[in-house]
Design a protein around this nucleic acid. Sequence first.
DNA 1: ATGATATATGTAGTTAACTACGTAGTTTTG
DNA 2: CAAAACTACGTAGTTAACTACATATATCAT
Lengths: 159, 159
Amino acid sequence: MNVIDESGILAIATRLQRLSDQLRKDGVLIYKANGIDFEPKWFPVIYTLHLRSVLSVVEIASEIGYTHPSTISLLKELEKVKLIRSKKDKADERKRLIQLTAKGQELIEQMKPVWDVMIAALTELTTTQNNLLLAISEVEEQMKRLSMFERAKRIGLTS
Amino acid sequence: MNVIDESGILAIATRLQRLSDQLRKDGVLIYKANGIDFEPKWFPVIYTLHLRSVLSVVEIASEIGYTHPSTISLLKELEKVKLIRSKKDKADERKRLIQLTAKGQELIEQMKPVWDVMIAALTELTTTQNNLLLAISEVEEQMKRLSMFERAKRIGLTS
DNA sequence: ATGATATATGTAGTTAACTACGTAGTTTTG
DNA sequence: CAAAACTACGTAGTTAACTACATATATCAT
């Protein structure tokens, strides 16, 4: 047991990140082992377009919870590998409408069984006494009510 | 509710990271509001040296669970702001021994009450039906036994 | 005692997110 | 209906971690 694990809740941000990284790396391995050329970081965009079919850049950004510049750089990659395409919105010339290509849709069909395996593996991993996914949702809910910063202010100091 | 939250466990890495980022940002705000010039990313190193007093670069890296190049760049910053200092190990010339400066120790004393507030705020946030900190530990334990990749291989596909 | 191996540190370059800022088109308002 | 404010998108630069590689010292096996 190392210092970070011992330091308790103070290092929780570090531990969340470490766990996220490990899962993402295993995600890469699993896609690769199944002969699928796909990066986990693309998942939020692709999955969103799978469900919603046509969206603008900012709509995607808001759905996946990233900033729009981050989203733009993901979209550039995805357009380069021809998983998505985009066209100007005729009704509002500021907007660029994004959708999956046929190749993108085919890839999703290929990935679905792999996703099922991932879901099973992740479910195994996280079905413990305290369920991680539920814990995340609960904490997000708590933060929506009152952020960590607001709570800290209420509790004390802020000299 | 957005697509990522709806997509369930598949996007768990994304949600872990998002949560970590939010907590870290609030950490910055709390330090700042209390007049303390400290970045949350420094916490693992500083806290480790607080507990162990003299360590080499690789020992610190291993304690905080980072690679040694990441650790070196943190140490460079910390040395620049004079919170730590380092000297060659006379017994083993390859090693650089790191320790807190007086300024570093004073800063820790200043931070301790802020850490208490943070602990209280974080405990509030995470004391829900499924405890986040315990959930993390449990999942880490599960992964130590068998990684997500190994579980996925056992479950199926890997054509 | 020396050649092979291992360990400790350092450097360079990459990555995947971010913030700050700029521009073009749309909507609102006085 | 023109000016102001807002919205959508894009670019540039930053950050905080990483991997891959290089070098110096130490240890071990013959």
